[in-house]
Design a protein around this nucleic acid. Sequence first.
DNA 1: ACCTGAACACCGTTCAAGT
DNA 2: ACCTGAACACCGTTCAAGT
Lengths: 191, 191
Amino acid sequence: MKNQAVGSSSDKIVVAATRMAQARGYGGLSIRDLAQEVGIKAASIYHHFASKADLAAAVARRYWEDSAAVLEALATASADPLLSLRRYPETFRKSLESDNRMCLSSFMAAEYDDLPEGVRIEVQAFADVNVAWLEKVLGEAGIVDPEQTRRRACAIYAAVAGAQLIARGRADIALFDALIESYRQAGLLPG
Amino acid sequence: MKNQAVGSSSDKIVVAATRMAQARGYGGLSIRDLAQEVGIKAASIYHHFASKADLAAAVARRYWEDSAAVLEALATASADPLLSLRRYPETFRKSLESDNRMCLSSFMAAEYDDLPEGVRIEVQAFADVNVAWLEKVLGEAGIVDPEQTRRRACAIYAAVAGAQLIARGRADIALFDALIESYRQAGLLPG
DNA sequence: ACCTGAACACCGTTCAAGT
DNA sequence: ACCTGAACACCGTTCAAGT
């Protein structure tokens, strides 16, 4: 389940790199800054990861794995699928609460052109996980034409990611809340 | 109206920088690459712009000015506000059509933490222009509770930007079209 | 196994010097 | 006015050398 023992050097690197990438993206992920934060030299990072691309791929993989676990927990915690749907935007809100950070996968989607292949795959996996979860919960809720659940799941994911992006651009978490509420009023999300 | 004469060196720099920033963001905007594309040396860029921040601010300002003009033309071209609304997503689709590029303002919203103050202001102006246009056209169409037009305008802008971001992450313009169509079916955009 | 200093080829930026 | 070569302090990365 865990790829690195909690508290190990590799683990500390991944955790710090995740936070940095959520604030500055793949391009802004600085090996030298990262090393300083972990308390080692830049060259030592390469003892744990073969390259920046490898590190970022590990970071992105762990990111979607953790996200999948959070969504799973959310679905089992609230027996009512409608409540799960209602709480879905909270997973994106949490990033903004943490110093206006954003979803690593959204940031890296923007950086598509400069993304190594191995990172791209893990970034897309995050989207897959979110859409699959939404599709399942939408199906259980039965509020959408069965033939449209997947399309609606994609739409919700894209819209929530967009709300987070625009709110980050203003460092305004209240704007995120207002956007989600507008989605509900418009009928994109269940009220 | 125009800040640089068309065809001048400054103009060529801004045009090339805009395309580069739409593909690689502010951080990925390389002065050396840019100079090479324009056919001068990197140091020469600084004869036209005091710094990378100044150049990026000029780029972002021109970007929202051009965008405002395009939206104005769209509104006057189609007398029916519902038709204007229907065509609004096309303005975001065009970036994807151009080698999977994205909205400069969306990319830079992600880069919020690393954005110089002068650039931030112009980036936010783009959002303001889009929301104001949507608010006006939504009002004319009269399809939304008058007290909710501004909130709905924000929601549409955020959702369309999100659709572009997610479609770029897959280099899949058909996904953008599907997302916009889903927004219409869900009721966020008029059918 | 884990870390490091020194080096490599880059980057944005500055500046004195050219035309 | 416009451009440039050379330099500055950075960057990701490599590697031989340390423990």
